[in-house]
Design a protein around this nucleic acid. Structure first.
Lengths: 227, 227
DNA sequence: ATCTTACCATACCGATCGGTATGATACGAG
DNA sequence: CTCGTATCATACCGATCGGTATGGTAAGAT
């Protein structure tokens, strides 16, 4: 709601000493050791602050304080608050998908075991308070930052979906008429359970055991067994 | 992030002329015609503003301007920004459940028809831009306003859930071992589809036809038919 | 030994924030 | 016709906002 100060946005700069702007696109910059350390301090503090207070609720002063850095240092690494938010949220998004989607040992396991493993992964992630705040922030800002929401979907929903579809097609024990629709039923159920129980505090109001849900889903799979 | 001015929060008031505070709990106040009109203008404007900009992003100045009212009028009807937010969001929540959960003609319809009707209702609601903003805001503020999130769950999820469970139990054509788990699979799938497609902009990235999903769910129901 | 770089501390800028004070006006009830 | 009420317009309050300016310090490179 606050209009930025755009005095001298066009003028080169009245400042006597030019301050290095790392975010300027002048090729691949080799950041010094110190710079990289400060940068990661800023990112970590910004992350914590944005996830706790939301985009508007977080102040740059607080981020600087938590990062153990002065504001100018932030503004030498990031153009402005919006761009800091975008970088921080986007990098957390890709971090999550990177640490999660190793599909290691479950090659050639039966379909129900694969599905249980996927459900377990999603459920486990929602035990992490930071992830819950992450999802809340992502959804809360989805109107103001649609690219981030799309990135989130692309990085988290898409690969799981296609993994399930591929698994369904590479087996002959169960028969599904519309494998993508079934995949969406499966992850939709699990994700909505997390959303309802953890994001919206449903566990304090209508608690429901997740294993009952997964068992139900697996039972549904079993109904598709070729007889 | 801004600390409120709490000068004279304890002192009675330095103001010469006492301003009527409708939010004071001094019994059932009969608001005048004018007051009720102003109040509803304020609520409508606050709703639009909070849903568009979020709690922190919305300013009382803008709400007053949109309501065609001066700020003092807002503060004579509501204690502060938080309380305005709570009233506005809570009343929208109960409005939604009120206008939605008439279970009219579908008495004694077969189970698949009932489920299709429920899915249709949920899907239709997510065609409304205001409802999408409502859900985004509700989730985005779920950490700062947990009571609102719980109210939301209680008012929207619970009744649909128990309706389905009751419907499953009052029929003998289909057999479900865990009717509540199945109910959660059903509405979880539908709600997550809306969340993914509309709230998180998934329809512009991984579009998926909702009727395919509902058909899949009904096909799953059909697998439970007693042979 | 000088220069540059990246940081520090502090203070400042204009704008906007949530909320209040003052005084005027329009109007219905007695 | 007067009195109380609920609004209006406007201005103000202290605090905080995002962002910048000034000047200084420590360290590595030339």
């Amino acid at each position: 709601m606050k209009k930025p100060n755009d005095t001298q946005t066009s003028a080169p700069s009245k400042s006597r000493r030019e301050i290095k702007k790392f975010w300027t696109e002048d090729g691949e910059q080799e950041l010094s050791e110190l710079s990289r350390k400060k940068r990661s301090q800023i990112i970590e503090a910004a992350l914590e602050t944005f996830l706790e207070l939301g985009y508007e609720g977080a102040s740059m002063n607080l981020v600087a304080e938590r990062a153990g850095v002065i504001k100018q240092t932030i503004y030498s690494h990031f153009q402005d608050k919006q761009s800091l938010f975008r970088v921080v949220i986007a990098s957390l998004t890709v971090d999550y998908v990177q640490n999660a989607l190793q599909e290691p040992e479950l090659i050639d396991k039966p379909l129900p075991a694969v599905l249980r493993k996927i459900a377990e992964t999603i459920l486990a992630r929602h035990q992490d308070a930071r992830h819950i705040r992450f999802v809340r922030t992502m959804i809360g800002e989805a109107e103001r930052f649609p690219e981030l929401a799309k990135l989130f979907t692309d990085a988290t929903v898409r690969p799981v979906l296609s993994l399930i579809v591929e698994r369904i097609k590479n087996q002959t024990i169960y028969k599904f008429d519309d494998s993508e629709a079934f995949a969406r039923v499966f992850i939709g159920t699990v994700v909505n359970h997390c959303m309802q129980q953890h994001i919206l505090h449903g566990k304090e109001l209508l608690p429901f055991d997740s294993t009952r849900l997964v068992d139900e889903l697996v039972a549904i799979v079993e109904l598709h067994r070729i007889r």
